[in-house]
Amino acid sequence: MTETVRHRDQTNAAAPSRLQWERYAVRRGDRWRDIWMGRLITTIAVSTIAAIILIFLFIGREAAPVLTSAEVHQEVTVAKMVVPLASRAGRPNEFIWQPVSDTPKYSLPPLLLGTLKATLIAILFATPFAVGAAIYSSEFAPPRIRELIKPVIEMLAGIPSVVMGFFALMVLASVLKDTFGWRFRLNATNAGIALGVAIIPVIYTVAEGALRAVPRHLREAAQALGATPWATARRVILPAAAPGIFAGVTLGLGRAVGETMIVLLASGNAAIWSMSLTDSIRTMSATIAAELAEVVIGSAHYHVLFFIGALLFLITFLVNSLGELYIGRLRRRLTGVAG
């Protein structure tokens, strides 16, 4: 504190006399500065609200022509994006994503299915590891090991997604193909596993936070009743923290849906309508990343890519809101218990 006071005396080289200080508790210049800086700070803070609105507006603005523009409708409509199309005369109708062709085709179902496959595999892969590690470090790990797990998770979270994608492209794909004898190196499972590794930290962090937030008296009550650590964890801690674990999985899902570089590098990027988990996939995010750089701005293709972006934005928004909902439920439950 003394430092601050000294500092102030130094800055006010022509400091008013003691008498003046008493009369004007705050100098006029200081008061004006206080008011204007307050306004500036408030304006800047409000601009964060503006940022999210601007994102919404500008994605929407570039996506809207898909719904409204007659020019775009000559090439594609929402109806054409969701029904199977004839690729050539005489062949059965199918879903085709073929934006660069004489008659461009923009079927969304293969992209949606690809995104769904990658995301589901990622979640199925990541959840056991992330939740298991969270249970271990909150319930069983000795303090020294717990201190070690944290930086490991932080480092895992710190790996840029392009690096994870690179690893999946160059190493993981070959290992998986050689082990299981799949036809394609780059496929849904390969991308899904890499994606899963990338979202482990998200799930872990939220789940571990929830487990540790379970009030001590619940744990102690169970133990006092003679419950083993296993019974305490399974019957008391896990049910209490369940919304938090769901929240972690949901937020991981939100992250996986929107993740781009990993799937762009590791999934093969073939937009095919197939239920097989070892076929190549093309996700929504990877489609945008791969095609937007080469598209003519203002073309139907350009607007369709923004339309996909808007869908992605909407999906992640809904998924993340669900996650927040679970977190709110957890908070209410735990404070209800403690209160």
Binding site: I59, G258, S285, L292, F306, G309
Partner: peptide, 12 residues
């Protein structure tokens, strides 16, 4: 803002 996918930021 923290939950928006990075590719959507690219579009934005």
């Amino acid at each position: 803002l923290a939950g928006v996918p990075s590719i959507v930021f690219g579009l934005f």
